[in-house]
């Protein structure tokens, strides 16, 4: 094998092998330009001084052919002065017998912009150039990203819909307002409704939250939920309907004394302090109840409203107590 033997290539062969080459003569004028580079420049670059045509960014600027040739083999970053927006990669080698230098370029990361702006086609790339594969990948990836985005959007909408339809309060696992509304409506729609409704509101909860923090508040709410759950029968419903508000529905209940007893027992159990992070959290509760049997035609709105009146009566009497609704609680005791 003969090392470093000089070979001759026709201009056409050079164009096919390196469609982005630039051959500069010893005088520093451009002798030959690859067809793809000519297409990108959109003008004939032959005969022009090399440094009027290219701008070398890295590794350092060179203004003479000698300076440029001293960078032989290094990775060059350069652009055409007529397209400063397209940064190319390049390599320069000196030609034998002092006939100048040959610069070979590639589109580097400017490939997409160059292809878009200059209308390059498959023919403008050597089969050995992977730019076309890059373009393919870029387009395929964009399509896949679109599909993934669509899937994420659909899942997001589904999650929102599911949350809207959810019947459980996520913190306490109790029924939420929506579940309670549905259960209450169902209970009032039977021919002879017999059930009790209790509206319970925590006292001093805000103080716990403010002094010990939200985590303590959440702990108290979970604890309250456990107590309420443990005090009801399996067919009854306990729902968290607001920050520290709960509604309990007692099926087959027509006994005012029973409701009073449940109310008193709930309040006394809620008053037992629970420990969070070594600190006792003390709360109590006020409650108001109403029985469906006292109405000819009980409606959810009416019953909730009357239980509310009873609850306010408990609050006005100094909190920490239970009140059963009756007509004489109306007007005079309601705040404002």
């Amino acid at each position: 094998m003969i090392q470093d033997r000089v070979i001759g290539l026709s201009g056409t062969a050079l164009d096919q092998l390196m469609p982005m080459h630039l051959w500069v003569g010893p005088s520093g004028l451009i002798n030959r330009v690859g067809p793809t580079l000519t297409r990108i420049a959109a003008r004939d670059l032959r005969g022009q001084p090399l440094f009027d045509v290219i701008d070398l960014h890295r590794p350092r600027s060179a203004r003479t052919l000698e300076a440029l040739l001293s960078l032989q083999g290094a990775r060059l970053t350069l652009c055409l002065r007529c397209r400063p927006d397209l940064q190319f990669r390049g390599i320069v080698v000196g030609l034998p017998a002092g006939v100048g230098g040959l610069i070979q370029m590639s589109l580097g990361l400017s490939f997409a912009k160059a292809v878009d702006d200059c209308g390059l086609t498959l023919k403008d790339f050597s089969p050995c150039d992977q730019t076309v594969d890059l373009l393919y990948l870029r387009e395929a990836n964009a399509a896949i990203a679109r599909e993934s985005r669509k899937l994420t959007e659909r899942l997001q909408r589904a999650r929102q819909a599911a949350e809207q339809q959810a019947l459980t309060d996520t913190l306490t696992g109790l029924a939420n307002r929506r579940a309670m509304d549905a259960a209450l409506l169902a209970l009032t729609e039977v021919p002879v409704p017999r059930f009790g409704l209790m509206h319970l509101d925590l006292d001093f909860f805000k103080e716990v939250n403010d002094s010990l923090g939200h985590a303590a508040g959440d702990h108290v709410l979970t604890h309250v939920a456990d107590i309420l759950r443990s005090e009801i029968r399996s067919g009854d419903i306990v729902a968290r309907v607001g920050g520290d508000e709960f509604v309990l529905l007692f099926r087959d209940c027509d006994d005012p004394d029973l409701l009073e007893a449940i109310g008193a027992r709930l309040i006394s159990r809620l008053e037992e302090p629970t420990i969070f992070d070594g600190q006792p959290c003390r709360i109590s509760a006020s409650a108001g109840s109403v029985l469906a049997s006292r109405y000819d035609h009980p409606t959810p709105d009416r019953m909730l409203n009357d239980a509310d009146v009873a609850l306010y009566a408990s609050k006005n009497r100094g909190r920490a107590q239970h009140t059963l609704y009756s007509e004489d609680l109306l007007a005079p005791l309601r705040p404002n």
């Binding site: 292809v115 086609t121 870029r138 387009e139």
Partner: peptide
Amino acid sequence: FTLGGRVA
């Protein structure tokens, strides 16, 4: 068909 053009 153009090489460039369609990436959203």
